[in-house]
Nucleic acid binder design. Structure first.
Lengths: 214, 214
DNA sequence: TTCATCTTTGACCGGTTGGTCAGCATCACG
DNA sequence: CGTGATGCTGACCAACCGGTCAAAGATGAA
């Protein structure tokens, strides 16, 4: 009997489903949905192709299972922004968490990037509902901070876009980053962290355009 | 005889090669290399598949021809930075040109993003040579401006990364941008332009950390 | 040990894909 | 107009891909 759509009941099911998802993340994030093949995933997973299809109904189902988990994890750093916190600490903390995520989950970042790049055919609806609602909520917090003069006035949603763009760049374009910095250059993340801190830090100094200096 | 690798000699060759490249840009940028099919490109081009292969030796050759032109065009805005110019005008001008490019050439941006995302297998060498050299050259200019106290001190190469990330985001992640802003929202680029101007503008005010105020 | 259930696989299938080829159509130039 | 070069296509092919299936193997509770 197929173990496809039901929740895992046995130890083997739990382990193998996870093994497959790991392998699929590896392959899908590097090749995109169409570029990836079941044979590649099977090889990385160390399982046979029919065995993959014993645990998941189809290639689509594997991909869907990956995306399902992904968006939630991906938005955790944004959710963690505390409306009652200090704007500087909250914004810079968000940037730091997001950059950390790019460093430690580059495959997830690339999977997401691939999906969006190709028009988000299997994620589109969630973007317009869940994602939009969360961004709207946090943008309102940013807007309030701007009203209170504690943050330079910019379009709050685009400010969030900026955080996404700058942090995800280091995962999605890692090859380019490394090529430009050169082979002898070490870990690019510390310098990235410092540069983002300066860039966003300046948005918090003397907000409103006036009150600079002690 | 095949018209594959030689330079176009006749009017028909010039026209059809261009038609094919246009169609290929459309399809490759939306589906990636492996996701795109010759049949799709042929249909968009309004030509038969064997006819495509009369003008280009292979699918790879079409893709390579696209990339060849692309990197050069893509780096023009960076090349245009004038070492003798005013830091504010030069940096903000660069951001503006790059954002314009995202707006008017989103397909090229996505083609490039796709290639990098998948590890730049067909562009890697150029990144480490041509691209790296140009970035190195312009980073030196930025570094000098920082030495002169006319620009906040950040890692100059990462500053260039920031411009890339922020501007290309609006082309590569357009679907997400539109989903989050909502269907009734208009053109996102004016707000993006303003936000980038503020963000980078702050890097030029009171550089060095001290001389704020009139 | 027994036996029902869960797990695994080799062989296979139909559809798609990049690419070939022989031959026909068209063009441009003398 | 004639003719060689250029342009175009239907038919075809081998490789690949997602997915199926019958049957063999492993597992574990009674």
């Amino acid at each position: 009997m197929s173990a496809g759509s039901t929740r895992p009941r046995t130890r083997i099911q739990r382990e193998n489903r996870q093994t497959i998802l790991d392998a699929a993340l590896e392959v899908f994030s590097a090749q995109g949905f169409r570029g990836a093949t079941l044979d590649q995933i099977a090889e990385v997973a160390g399982l046979s192709k029919p065995n993959l299809l014993y645990y998941f109904a189809s290639k689509e189902a594997i991909y869907a299972a990956l995306l399902e988990t992904l968006l939630d994890t991906w938005l955790d750093p944004l959710r963690a922004i505390d409306p009652a916190g200090d704007p500087r600490a909250e914004l810079l903390g968000y940037v730091r968490r997001k950059l950390e995520m790019s460093r430690e989950m580059p495959r997830e970042s690339r999977l997401f990037a691939n999906e969006i790049l190709q028009g988000a055919p299997r994620l589109g609806s969630l973007l317009a509902t869940d994602l939009r609602a969360l961004v709207e909520e946090k943008a309102a917090v940013l807007a309030r901070w701007m009203d209170e003069g504690r943050l330079a006035r910019v379009h709050p949603v685009h400010l969030i876009f900026a955080v996404w763009a700058l942090t995800q760049h280091y995962a999605d374009f890692e090859v380019q980053v490394r090529a430009v910095l050169g082979p002898e250059a070490g870990d690019p993340f510390p310098a990235a962290q410092q540069m983002l801190e300066t860039l966003f830090g300046r948005l918090l100094e003397g907000a409103g355009g006036g009150q600079s200096g002690p």
